[in-house]
Nucleic acid binder design. Structure first.
Lengths: 153, 153
DNA sequence: ATATTATTGTTGCAAATGCAACACATTAAT
DNA sequence: ATTAATGTGTTGCATTTGCAACAATAATAT
């Protein structure tokens, strides 16, 4: 366990480093294929599409942004007509429920295929099975971390 | 491959999400054990300890910060006496070579054991072998990404 | 020779981010 | 009944971050 003498060799830092490359790849992707919205906004639409309508704070907890940032992203998406926000209640609390519009769904679908096309050009030095296993391991690992960190969102 | 219809299910986004939790854990760690320097500064010292003395730009490429940010971190570390910067040349270019001081080495060693102690308290729901394999997969994956993204550092 | 390009590091500004404080409503406690 | 605590969302500010431009020097090209 020699490597444990260095924090930078820990799984935590290794994940952070790798995620930075993912972020760079994302910026490069947006720049090259010219999306009409930011990648954060894509993620937001995608999260709504997968999980259904929800309030802002629940969304914030899923995409791991603070409430102000989440609000700003939603403002931008609403201006563009990709979502609407309607007053609703949840446990007797007044919330602003976010709803994907048809336009939003169609745009997301279009963007998703563009992204997919771009990403498929990246050489897969890891096999599909290995990537799949990696995805699952990362996901399992994240579940453990979830229990350790307090979010304050 | 149903999940490939969503960008948020891609390995890229999954890694980003997980890394965010790692970052939260890092902030929590710093807050609780009270380090004398930021985690970015710890990473910088650790990188120097592992790779030996180097110039600022090479360091920036390793820790994945832009040049101004790297410079600022080094200013802070130099003020505290953990590094010194000496004029040197590399390929006939004038560079500022960063050198870890004895004080820096000792402090890093102290911090590292504190961090290790803190991290060991986290329940290892994944076995040591699985973490090790995960670390290797993540590292392999990062190497592929390195070839795809242009860094501009 | 002169101009162009490349490398290293700094400065300064604009954009993004995080966070505390507020507003408002509801539930729980004393 | 009053107070305190919790949940939701917004505003405003301070910090961080990223990025372009600059300075200085050296290699390369024309």
């Amino acid at each position: 366990m020699l490597e444990e003498k260095h924090y930078i060799n820990s799984i935590y830092y290794q994940l952070e480093l790798t995620a930075k490359y993912c972020k760079y790849l994302g910026s490069q992707l947006v720049a090259k294929i010219g999306l009409p919205i930011s990648l954060d906004e894509v993620v937001t639409l995608d999260t709504l599409a997968m999980n259904g309508d929800m309030c802002q704070r629940d969304l914030a907890k899923i995409i791991l942004k603070d409430r102000p940032s989440t609000g700003r992203i939603l403002n931008s998406l609403e201006e563009k007509g990709f979502i609407i926000r309607v007053a609703d209640t949840k446990n007797n609390r007044l919330i602003r429920k976010i709803i994907l519009t048809e336009n939003g769904k169609q745009t997301l679908s279009l963007i998703t295929s563009k992204i997919k096309e771009y990403l498929q050009k990246i050489p897969q030095a890891l096999s599909y099975e290995k990537i799949d296993y990696l995805k699952k391991s990362v996901s399992d690992f994240r579940e453990i971390l979830k229990q350790e960190v307090e979010l304050n969102i």
